[in-house]
Design a protein around this nucleic acid. Structure first.
Lengths: 252, 252
DNA sequence: CCCGGACAAGTGGCCCAGCCACTACACCAC
DNA sequence: GTGGTGTAGTGGCTGGGCCACTTGTCCGGG
């Protein structure tokens, strides 16, 4: 095979620095939160300029492997500097309907968690979002912003970084459907009603009911969106049984 | 809400440069392979040092969005500088307990979708994974690989790129818990039994039952893991009601 | 005793000016 | 046409420097 004739690797200095840092972290038995040597020290010990060290650190930073505090040093985030495998497989597009499935999966869980973990502050925030949406609708608007705030507040109340980040990553695509959905006749007020139901369940600490209410809401939203594609479909609150989440008991 | 009191954003200069570059690429209608302005020019026009421009380019480089040829200029790889959402997800770290919540949220949905969309080929794949696990167990092994294959096969049958990518992004952390879980006495055979139940439901096209079975399975797994942390907790198959997924009707 | 301000050291953010290495391209000789 | 040469353009990397922020320490007022 002509494998030997593949393009020559032209390693950048900062890449070599990254490798060395990886090695160092492993050998030095550093763990999460541990402090890395100062940039100036690293530069001197590695025999490279501080700029190159900085470039390496910038890379590790955007990969979330390291955290640099201005004036406070650079710290390990995880127990290793190894990049996530996912990072390597890039370039793949998703079909749009996926968003709906994903949103139903994640947001019902978020509602359930929110019911279990919400604090007074969370409830106030959600309630404020509803007020905002109410005002928007009263003013003749669609209530897009209020809707966004509501879902954001619920997400915040669930206290799951990982799910919140996932929601964040599909936020843009959700926004597209949000506007389209709220443009439907009578939709804003209906969404508002459903929001209220979700808040009630969360307020009561009833995770199961919160999940159910959220699912019903999302199905409504989805249905609207589907309408503009294929006018069949029915099913709304009928088969919404419940979510399998743990019962209503609030956290400890 | 106390949203106003969240940590102040402390934007790094190179991040702002990246944003500007994104903007520029969009406005200038640049496409794949097009050449970016020279670093020196960018620095001057943006009013920042060349160092900062370089840091920005380094970031875009490791993200595979741009290619810098020593002495030959910097070129666009894709038609945009937007990072893939999954990639952004990975650029941050999450707490560990989140994984359990996330997995329950996503995998139950995957099971439901799999029941609705699975083809004969999918069922064969899942079945093969079970066979493999059975053999492993018979050979005295824990069945780790078979377990992995099973969940992978179910994920594949669900045909949701977005959820599959999400699973992929937390795959490593799942792996950690998998081994630990299967080390529990009697656990491999019990997991196998639960897998069979999941396959049955998927095979029947019963999304609801598939979701329920998957949830029960994940609760079992989670319980094991929790045991090594805090020896309280009970609840296994008791309150596992069912998932709110659509009924059993297979797609179309 | 505790709180809060002042101070100094440590450290990251950013910049400047410059040299080197490599690429691209035009030109020239064969 | 082929291949060498020269030159301008451009990225890679350096070293030094200034500024801003964080942290810890010390000290005086309450």
């Amino acid at each position: 095979m002509s494998d030997a004739l593949r393009p020559m690797a032209r390693p950048r200095l900062y890449e070599q620095v990254i490798d060395r840092l990886r090695e160092y972290v492993a050998q030095a038995r550093l763990g999460a939160g541990d402090k890395l040597p100062a940039e100036r020290d690293l530069a001197q010990q590695l025999g490279v300029s501080r700029t190159s060290v900085k470039q390496a650190i910038v890379v590790l930073q955007v990969q979330g492997l390291v955290e640099a505090r201005h004036g406070g040093g650079t710290y390990l985030v995880g127990h290793t500097l190894d990049a996530e495998p996912v990072e390597q497989l890039v370039e793949r597009r998703q079909r749009l309907p996926d968003v709906l499935d994903a949103r139903e999966a994640v947001e019902t869980k978020l509602a359930e968690l929110a019911a279990q973990r919400r604090t007074k502050v969370d409830l106030d925030a959600i309630s404020a979002a509803l007020d905002h949406m109410r005002e928007e609708i009263a003013a003749g608007s669609y209530g897009v912003e209020g809707d966004r705030r509501f879902h954001a507040a619920v997400t915040a109340a669930a206290r799951s970084d990982i799910l919140a980040e996932f929601m964040n990553s599909i936020a843009e695509r959700i926004t597209e459907s949000r506007t389209e959905s709220l443009r439907q006749p009578g939709r804003p007020s209906r969404s508002l009603t459903q929001h209220v139901a979700i808040l009630d369940a969360i307020s009561l600490g009833d995770g199961r009911r919160a999940a159910t209410a959220m699912r019903r809401h999302l199905r409504t939203v989805a249905k609207v969106r589907l309408l503009s594609w294929n006018p069949d479909d029915e099913d709304d609150g009928r088969r919404d049984e419940d979510d399998g989440g743990a019962g209503g008991d609030a956290r400890e």
